[in-house]
């Protein structure tokens, strides 16, 4: 098993991400720390609004048009602190060393640009390839992600492709410059189940071939079980539990993780085991005090309302923020 402890490719320490300014400012990510080793698939799990997307987007400062202030904490990638880079310096990293694929492949490709040009753009930016060489390489990339008849597809526009094919194109585009880390923000959520499987398979194959590290953001524990080496569970902007996939699934050490696992239909889809989590996810503008899960937690006691957020080791490589972890019986 690969562990992140040895020599991490990415080490995120006490990350804080805030959107907006003044009174309206919202802390989307609070004091998040994790690391990812080369070649590792690291899962970031949580409901929508848990800050998992903001976490991964803050690594390369892409917020989809929202205004976020510079992240606090440190993001050490390959020995450099990304937080300290200027926006301009960061463009040298984006696409070249860290690439990203997005949730909705239908809207993530520029509708007025040919596919070949969209892939080639990245190569020309970072590797100074001529347009002909970039085209050759784009062709090769399309073939490697399983696009059929790539020579004909190069000059097509995105609207000629199906959703699954577009996600393949986006993966080809992301991997064009052989990055070391791929950020995949819900890469299969918008796809059909069969296509989901193909795309996940493809990402794992590419990881195998190029020792690519993957930060996989998802709300789908099924996807996590299938692909991730290690996992961090996020709730209301904080990481509440982290460990290997096996640890998290076998001995979940946080009531929220347990609730998530209980909400998962087990293999045969037996509906009787489905237990949705009571209550609503909290608003990040006014989060609950102490452990943010306490209003929804079946095990909550008064101490939870004041509990400081600290991750404590449950077993080697497995940490939880729950103060009542002893009572969970794992």
């Amino acid at each position: 098993m690969i562990t992140g402890a040895s020599s991490p490719l990415l080490r995120v320490d006490s990350l804080q991400v805030r959107f907006g300014s003044g009174k309206d400012a919202v802390t989307a990510v609070d004091n998040a720390s994790f690391n990812i080793a080369p070649g590792e698939v690291f899962g970031l799990v949580g409901e929508s609004g848990s800050g998992k997307s903001a976490t991964c987007r803050s690594l390369i400062r892409l917020y989809g048009g929202s205004i976020a202030s510079l992240p606090k904490g440190s993001i050490t990638f390959n020995g450099r602190d990304l937080v300290r880079l200027s926006d301009k310096e960061l463009t040298e990293i984006r696409g070249a060393e860290i690439a990203m694929i997005f949730q909705d492949p239908m809207s993530a490709l520029n509708p007025t640009m040919r596919i070949g040009d969209q892939i080639g753009e990245s190569l020309r930016r970072h590797q100074n390839l001529s347009s002909r060489a970039a085209r050759e390489r784009a062709l090769h990339l399309l073939r490697s992600v399983g696009v059929t008849a790539p020579e004909r597809r190069l000059d097509n526009y995105p609207h000629h492709f199906s959703g699954g094919m577009r996600q393949r194109v986006l993966i080809a585009l992301a991997l064009a410059c052989r990055p070391k880390l791929l950020i995949a923000d819900e890469p299969t959520t918008a796809l059909d189940v069969t296509v989901q499987q193909q795309i996940l398979r493809l990402i794992l194959d590419l990881r195998q071939q190029t020792n690519l590290a993957v930060l996989l953001v998802t709300h789908d524990l099924g996807v996590v079980a299938q692909t991730c080496d290690r996992v961090a569970v996020m709730y209301a902007g904080r990481i509440v539990e982290t460990g290997t996939t096996r640890q998290i699934f076998r001995r979940p050490a946080h009531p929220y993780t347990r609730a998530l696992l209980n909400a998962l239909p087990s293999s045969a889809g037996r509906k009787d085991t489905l237990a949705p989590i009571e209550g609503e996810p909290p608003s990040l503008a006014a989060p609950p005090s102490g452990c943010r899960f306490h209003p929804r937690c079946p095990l909550a006691v008064d101490a939870c309302k004041q509990a400081e957020h600290v991750l404590r080791a449950v077993e080697p490589g497995h940490e939880s923020a729950c103060i009542r972890v002893g009572e969970l019986g794992c």
Binding site: I60, L62, G64, G65, S66, D87, K88, T91, E92, I93, R94, G95, A96, A99, M100, F102, Q103, D104, S107, A108, L109, N110, P111, T112, M113, Q118, E121, S122, R125, H126, L170, L173, A174
Partner: peptide, 25 residues
């Protein structure tokens, strides 16, 4: 705020390239 503009930025294009090649058209 379109997704493909984020894709363009994620390629490491400079903001001017993003604006002229992707946003404007």
């Amino acid at each position: 705020s379109a997704d493909y503009v984020d894709t363009a930025r994620s390629k490491g294009l400079r903001s001017r390239q993003v604006l002229w090649r992707h946003v404007l058209r």
